[in-house]
C-alpha cells in the first residue's frame, strides 16, 4: 500500500544538474556507476544513522517524547539539534505487532539525511525502488526480515517535501538497558524498515 500523493514538484535544480552529469558520464563510459557508489558508500555510515538511533532510543524510553515524535517528527528531532537542510517535513511511523512500515523513494535524494546520513546504495537502486512497492514482503525476506502474515506492511514513498523515519519495535529483553545501550541496537536499516532492531544477544554475540 503506497501512500496516495503525487511527486508533483520538480526536483531541486542542483539535484537535476548532478543527476544529468552522472547519467551522461556513466552512459559515455567515463565513470562507472559501481565505482561512484563504492566511493560514496564510504561516507554513508559516518554521520547519519547514529542521529536517528538516538531519536529512536529516546522514543523507546520516554513516552512523552514518543508522542511528540509521532505528532511532529521535524520538531522532535530538532530537540536533538538535527535539522533539515531544505526544510522538508519529517514523519515518524511506528512499527507495532500489527503494522510494519518500510520506506522507499523513487529518487535517491528523498531520504532523511539529518537523521540517517547518506542513503545506502541499495536504497537508490532501481530494483529496490520498484519492487518494495510491488512485493514488499518478498523484498523484506531478502533482507532477512520475516514478518507474520498477520502483520500489515505499509510502504511509504518519500517525496522532496516529506521524508519518513521508521521507529522499529523495541526488542525483547531490553527492559534493563539505558538509552545509550538501546541506541546501539538501532541499526540503520531498521529505521528504513527493511530490518528490525538488533536484539541484545545479537549485539553481544558480534
Amino acid at each position: 500500500m503506497a501512500a496516495k500523493h503525487k511527486h508533483g514538484d520538480p526536483l531541486p535544480e542542483t539535484v537535476l544538474r548532478v543527476k544529468s552529469l552522472e547519467s551522461l558520464l556513466i552512459e559515455k563510459g567515463l565513470v562507472e556507476a559501481e565505482a561512484l557508489d563504492a566511493l560514496i558508500d564510504r561516507y554513508e555510515n559516518k554521520v547519519g544513522p547514529r542521529n536517528g538511533a538516538k531519536v529512536v532510543a529516546r522514543a523507546w524510553v520516554d513516552a512523552a517524547y514518543r508522542e511528540r515524535l509521532l505528532k511532529d517528527a521535524t520538531s522532535a528531532v530538532a530537540e536533538f539539534g538535527f535539522t533539515g537542510a531544505q526544510g522538508e517535513e519529517l514523519v515518524a511511523v511506528e512499527n507495532t505487532d500489527n503494522i510494519h512500515n518500510v520506506v522507499v523513494c523513487t529518487l535517491c535524494s528523498c531520504y532523511p539525511w539529518p537523521v540517517l546520513g547518506l542513503p545506502p546504495v541499495w536504497y537508490k537502486s532501481a530494483p529496490y525502488r520498484a519492487r518494495v512497492v510491488r512485493e514488499p514482503r518478498k523484498v523484506l525476506e531478502e533482507f532477512g526480515t520475516q514478518l507474520p502474515q498477520s502483520q500489515e506492511v505499509r510502504v511509504w514513498d518519500s517525496t522532496a517535501e516529506t521524508r519518513y523515519l521508521v521507529i522499529p519495535k523495541r526488542p525483547e529483553g531490553t527492559e534493563g538497558l539505558d538509552e545509550g545501550a538501546l541506541a546501539e541496537l538501532v541499526n540503520r536499516d531498521s529505521m528504513i524498515g527493511t530490518r528490525e532492531a538488533d536484539s541484545p544477544a545479537t549485539v553481544e554475540g558480534v
Binding site: V18, L21, L30, L36, L39, Y43, L118
Partner: peptide, 16 residues
C-alpha cells in the same frame, strides 16, 4: 558532505 548530491559531485570528479 551535507547532502548526497555533494558526495556525488565529489565522487564523479575523483573518478574522472
Amino acid at each position: 558532505f551535507d547532502e548526497p548530491w555533494q558526495a556525488q559531485a565529489f565522487a564523479m570528479t575523483v573518478k574522472l
